[in-house]
Amino acid sequence: MAEVLVYVDHVDGAVRKPTLELLTLARRIGEPVAVALGAGAADTAATAAEYGAVRVLTADAPEFADYLVVPKVDALQAAYQAVNPAAVLFPSSAEGKEIAARLAVRIGSGIITDAVDLEQGDEGPVATQSVFAAAYTTKSRITKGTPVITVKPNSAAPEAAPAAGAAEALEVSFSEQATGTKVVSRAARESTGRPDLTEAAIVVSGGRGVGGAENFPVVEALADSLGAAVGASRAAVDAGWYPHTNQVGQTGKTVSPQLYIAAGISGAIQHRAGMQTSKTIVAVNKDAEAPIFDLVDYGVVGDLFEVVPQLTEEVKTRKG
């Protein structure tokens, strides 16, 4: 059976959930061969194997952390040459997409980004994408070279399928461009203790209607009662009320949770682009004409400062 390269997104050896989804999808196309780079790379092997990796190629060198993207492209190119895979899959993170794109140019292959599903077709992998702010669903495939595909978080439920997955050292020689962009400093973002926005089953977002940073705890309290992640519209982010990393929409995160709750958000097309594919959508807005109500399964026309705290209390009571 053909092998499929899967790029492992990890933090010091802890594999992030989108990679488990990727390994699950990769098994529809062939046998996953994981590629893990940087500090802790070898520690990813056990998890990768649990989700079906038949081999785990690992490399660590200071270049991976000290320079932007290109050292990783060099490593993926080395893995590509060593494995001769049927496809190369990446998580659709900013970094994943950039590595994928440069690899595609180097190996003379087409690239598909932001797939939300993947299956094996007669002529290779077929990717489902959500386009024009999720108004359309397309099916595409790559017609030149080895398919390089990036897949969005939440595209599949991770399923364990234990395989051998032993770590093997990958030999990488860095290109001249590898040290072109220096990472002068890196400050890790502090964890809020809440679930990751793109991975959460429930997301509660606040918009301009929240009225100020001092009011966001109203949104956070509801999120915490549901074990949810907190999101924000761009209007709330631009006003400085909530960090940009929490922005949902075209220039923020795309989320596709089981439940999305929008409080004080009008539902502009660029916001919808980031949440339209959520399974259940709920909104609280005092304007009955707000476009967000076109999307909802349940909507409450009212003041969020009345409705949301009452909802939070009721959720707490019901959960006991």
Binding site: S109, A134, T137, T138, Q276, L295, G299, V300, V301, V307
Partner: peptide, 24 residues
Amino acid sequence: AWTKVDGAEERPARTAGTIVKDEG
């Protein structure tokens, strides 16, 4: 082109949900 779109489907409109006015 190195990629080919084989099909495009309009996302089905979401079925109309329940909308209530807050009366407390």
